[in-house]
């Protein structure tokens, strides 16, 4: 059993942009690609909560879908608990699928409307033929419900999703993911559809699960405040690449990459009268079809230098252990 539960080596996902019939016949154009994920390495440790954060279009959801094999890799390798899963056939991969589970953003859309809570949670058990009999299914469904804090299972098993509140729905979604006892849980924006008062319940639940079952969790979110409360380590993504990675507190309290700096500086805070040095970037993230040359961020970076548009900075380790892909940050770190 290795310490690393999931490893991604240089994973890429390029989506082909479809051109119309006319241009395919009459023009010989190179196919264009959306470079959603463009060469990312990741290591997630056992029992770790790891966050991938960034704005829309940074590729964070595609990374999650690649890990779950909901998308095929364009390039790169995925390793799960020491086994290479990226080349496996679907039947070989099936037994790994029970060990990694995913929960989605929208608890209103991710649960089937006409299935009872019991059916929803029991479905993965039945698909994977895990239980000897229906009694065991029932037992595991109930214990999964208790795991997610729905403490009187009898009250919930027969209910339909519309009879539950948003927070309860998300708990049921977590229970359905947990019933297979996965080693890795991928949560794509697990709380962004929930009210503030409900969010805390789900976040606490995820922390408890990690403490109790030593499960690894990958959180995908755009909300840095949520990341700060939950994650041990964080990776900030921009246009399909990781620009900065390290311990969450370190990265959010003193970011080094200029993009992270700008992002952190404009997150609204519920504190009054705090003087903050805001770095307001103009424009929006460029289209991932035409990614800027050199450093992807150089078109919007307020501190851009000459080399930034020519060479792409590598993700290098700094003296304090974090990794940053920015020439300026690397130079200033070396100077200190």
């Amino acid at each position: 059993m290795s310490d690393i539960i999931l490893e991604a080596r240089g994973i890429k996902k390029w989506f082909t942009v479809r051109s119309g019939l006319f241009s395919t016949i009459f023009k010989r154009t190179e196919p264009t690609y959306i470079r959603a994920v463009d060469g990312i390495d990741l290591k997630v440790k056992r029992g770790e909560i790891f966050c991938i954060a960034g704005e829309s279009g940074c590729g964070k959801t595609t990374i999650a879908r690649l890990i779950m094999r909901l998308e095929t890799l364009t390039e790169g390798e995925l390793w799960f608990d020491g086994d290479k899963i990226s080349d496996m056939s679907e039947s070989e991969f099936k037994k790994y699928r029970t060990r990694m589970q995913m929960i989605f953003q929208d608890p209103y859309g991710s649960l089937s409307n006409n299935m009872t809570v019991e059916d929803i949670i029991a479905e993965p058990l039945r698909i994977h033929n895990i239980c000897r009999d229906e009694c065991e299914v029932d037992e595991r469904v109930r214990s999964a419900l208790e795991d997610v804090g729905l403490n009187s299972p009898d009250e919930f098993v027969g209910r339909l999703p519309h009879e539950l509140s948003g927070g309860q729905r998300q708990r049921v979604a977590v229970a359905a993911a947990l019933v297979l006892n996965p080693d890795l849980l991928i949560a794509d924006e697990p709380v962004s559809m929930l009210d503030v008062s409900m969010r805390g319940q789900i976040l606490t639940l995820l922390l408890e699960l990690r403490a109790k079952k030593n499960i690894s969790i990958i959180i995908i979110t755009h909300n840095l405040a949520v990341a700060k409360q939950l994650a041990d380590r964080i990776a900030i993504a921009y246009l399909g690449k990781i620009v900065e990675r390290g311990e969450t507190k370190q990265i959010i309290d003193s970011p080094m990459h200029k993009y992270t700096k700008a992002l952190v500086s404009v997150v609204p805070v519920p504190e009054i009268g705090v003087e903050r040095n805001r770095i307001l970037l103009t424009g929006e993230t460029p289209n991932p079809i035409s990614i800027p040359s050199g450093c992807r961020f150089h078109t919007r970076c307020p501190f851009v230098g000459d080399e930034c548009s020519q060479k792409e900075p590598e993700l290098l380790k700094m003296s304090d252990g974090r990794e940053v892909a920015c020439f300026k940050a690397q130079v200033s770190d070396a100077a200190n």
Binding site: S165, G167, S197, N223, A225, K228, L230, E271
Partner: peptide
């Protein structure tokens, strides 16, 4: 009070807080 204390902030290290129950 509860609403504000459950609101996460990147500036401070807050414990996760929430309001039990449902609206």
């Amino acid at each position: 009070k509860k609403l504000i204390s459950s609101f996460p902030s990147i500036l401070v290290d807050k414990e996760i807080d929430f309001i039990p129950g449902n609206p």
